[in-house]
Simulated assay, not measured.
Amino acid sequence: MRMTSVLLVFIGGIFVSCDASETPENPENKEITTAKVTQDTASQPVPLALEISQGDSDLIVNDYLKEALSPIRENFRRINTKENWTTIDSIALEESTEGGEALFYYDNDQLKKIVARHFGELGQQLNEYYLLADELSFVF
């Protein structure tokens, strides 16, 4: 019992003698201060230094891709603005217990777009495949 009391006094003395300024992160023992957030300062908006995008004009880094991506972008726009498809086929996907569905969009018997929706336990995954001249051109 006496040894336990001595040990507790010793440990208590260590905690009392520790100072926040004598930490390994503060070897020069400078005074550490903390900032308090009050309602007045928390409600003031913080100014952001963001610039508004100017569209294609601010993409100087990828300027060399502009011509190469032009047919792919045009195909993407053309396919997604089309409302009347010749045929839309559907098949069930059974890659998981929740299943899924794939839709095949045809224009004049030519496959243009595939949309695959995979259902999962916590959500779903949607993949869109775009074809140009019977070849895969873009996946979203």
Rank of each mutant, 00 (worst) to 15 (best):
F138Y: 06
E121W: 09
T86S: 15
L132D: 07
N108Q: 09
I52Y: 04
T23G: 10
E128L: 13
M3Y: 15
W85H: 10
A102V: 02
R117K: 06
I79T: 09
I114Y: 04
L103P: 05
F10L: 14
R117S: 11
T81P: 03
S21L: 12
Q54W: 01
L122Q: 13
Y105D: 02
N127P: 00
S43C: 12
I72T: 09
Y64I: 07
S17E: 06
G12K: 05
F76H: 02
A68Q: 14
E67H: 07
I52M: 09
L65I: 06
H118K: 06
S137C: 08
N84Y: 03
I32R: 03
T33W: 14
L132G: 04
F15H: 02
T81N: 09
D19T: 11
Q54E: 08
I79P: 06
G12Q: 10
S90W: 08
G12M: 09
S96N: 10
A49E: 12
G123I: 05
I91G: 02
V37K: 04
A116S: 15
L69T: 11
E98S: 00
I88G: 03
R73S: 06
E28D: 15
K113P: 00
A116M: 09
E83I: 10
F138W: 01
L122P: 02
N108D: 10
A102Y: 10
E135D: 08
T4A: 01
I32H: 04
V139E: 11
S70I: 10
L7N: 12
